[in-house]
Design a protein around this nucleic acid. Structure first.
Lengths: 207, 207
DNA sequence: CGGGCCATCATACGAACGTATGAAGGAGGC
DNA sequence: GCCTCCTTCATACGTTCGTATGATGGCCCG
C-alpha cells in the first residue's frame, strides 16, 4: 500500500537491509539490526514499507534492476557477436563485483520456500534472453557453433554468478582472492576464454 | 563433545534438518520444526548434538561427503581425459539431482557471515583438485587447450552447481523443468557440450 | 500564527526462539 | 530383582523476534 520512493530514511533502510540480508539471510537479519544500522527508529520499516517482507522485496528489486542495463550496454555495438558476448561476460563480472551482495540475495530468493518474486523472474528472464539472442546471432553468421541458445546462455551466466557467490570459499579453500585485482583479472579472463572456446564454431587458434 | 554416529533418532534429526535447513535456511528452520519432523522430542538436538549449530555442521558434512567419491568414480578409467571430464560432469549433475538440498546448504555456508567449516572447504578443495588434475592431464597429452587448470575447473563446476541451485527459478522463469527427464537430459548434454568445446584443444568437428 | 500532516520517537505486546532442567522409561549385566 | 546407564520426555527460563500503539516533533500552507 506504500510507495515510499526514496526519502532519506527509506533509502537508508534499503541499503542497510541489503547488506544485512545478504550477510545473514532474511530471518537472520532482524528489524532491530536493520533499523539500527540505518540510523532509523525501530518502527521505520513498518512505517515506510508496511512489513519486513515488503522491505525485502524492495531490496532485491532495487539491487537487480541495474544488471540488465549493464548487460545491454555491453551487448550493443557493431562488433561480431562473439566479441559482444565476451564484453557482456566482463560487464556481468564487473557488475557483480560492484554489487557483491546481489548473488546472495538472488540465491536466497531462488532457494527459499516462498514463490519467487515476479519482478525478479522478469529481470532474470530478460538477461537470459539478451545473451541467448547474441548467441543466436552468432549462429546465424556462422561464428558460433550449433546448440540451444538459451541453454548456452545459462552455461555462460552460471560462471560469473557462481564464482561471485563462492568468493569467500575460493579465498579460504583454494587461495583465489578476488579482492586482489590481478587475481580477479586472471579469473575473469579465464572465464572469458572458456566462454569463447565453448561457443566458437571454428576452432581457430586464439590470441 | 558428542559423537552421535547414527542411532535412529540422531539420523532422523540429520535428515529432517537437511530438508528444513535447505528449505528455510539456518535461522528459518527452528529446533521445534526439526524435532517435530524427525518425530523426536524437543530436547533431542541438544542431547545428541549439543546445539543447533553443531547439528548444522553435521548435516552439511554428511551431505557433501559422497560427492567426492562420485566424482572419483566417474573420473577414473582409461579413456582420454576429455571423456573422463565429461563423465565427471554428468556424474556431478546426477549427484546434485539426487541431493537437491546440497547446493542450497553449500551456498548458505558460502555466503553466511560465520567462517566456512574446514571440512566443507576440504571436500570442495578435493573436488576442484580432481577436475583440475584431469584438465592438466589433457593438456599434457595435447587434447586440452592451454590455460590455468584450476580456473578451468571452476568454470566447469560452476555450471552444474548453479543450474541446480536455480532449478526453481528456471522452471518459473524460462520454463525449463529439470524434473522432466527429457528436459533435464537436454540441459545436461548442453553443459557437457559446452565444457567439451570450452576445453578442447583441437577444433575438430564434434559428433 | 495556528492547524494539519508527515515523519520519528519510545515503549509495549504476544509469539517464537534456543537451551536448561529434572523426572520417567527401559534394556542389559550382575 | 535391582542397579546403572543411555535415551526420551514434559516443562520452564530468559531472550529476541516482528509488529502495534500513541505521543512528540517539525515543516508548510492558509
Amino acid at each position: 500500500m506504500h510507495t515510499p520512493a526514496a526519502t532519506g530514511t527509506a533509502a537508508a533502510l534499503i541499503e542497510a537491509a541489503r547488506e544485512l540480508f545478504a550477510l545473514h539471510g532474511y530471518d537472520g537479519a532482524s528489524v532491530r539490526a536493520i533499523t539500527a544500522r540505518a540510523g532509523a527508529n525501530l518502527g521505520a520499516i513498518t512505517y515506510h514499507f508496511g512489513s519486513k517482507e515488503a522491505l525485502y522485496e524492495a531490496v532485491i528489486v532495487v539491487a537487480m534492476s541495474p544488471s540488465h542495463e549493464r548487460l545491454l550496454g555491453a551487448a550493443e555495438g557493431d562488433g561480431p557477436p562473439l566479441e559482444r558476448l565476451e564484453a557482456a561476460v566482463r560487464a556481468f563480472f564487473g557488475f557483480l563485483y560492484e554489487s557483491p551482495e546481489l548473488p546472495r540475495l538472488m540465491v536466497q530468493q531462488l532457494t527459499a520456500s516462498r514463490p519467487i518474486s515476479e519482478k525478479v523472474l522478469g529481470i532474470m528472464r530478460g538477461n537470459i534472453r539478451l545473451i541467448a539472442s547474441l548467441v543466436e546471432e552468432g549462429q546465424k553468421d556462422g561464428s558460433i557453433r550449433a546448440g540451444d541458445p538459451q541453454l548456452m546462455a545459462l552455461s555462460i551466466g552460471s560462471q560469473p554468478i557462481w564464482l561471485s557467490l563462492a568468493r569467500r570459499a575460493l579465498q579460504a579453500g583454494v587461495a583465489i582472492d578476488q579482492d586482489d585485482p590481478r587475481t580477479r583479472a586472471k579469473l575473469v579472463e579465464s572465464v572469458v576464454g572458456f566462454v569463447r572456446a565453448g561457443l566458437a564454431a571454428h576452432p581457430e587458434s586464439e590470441r
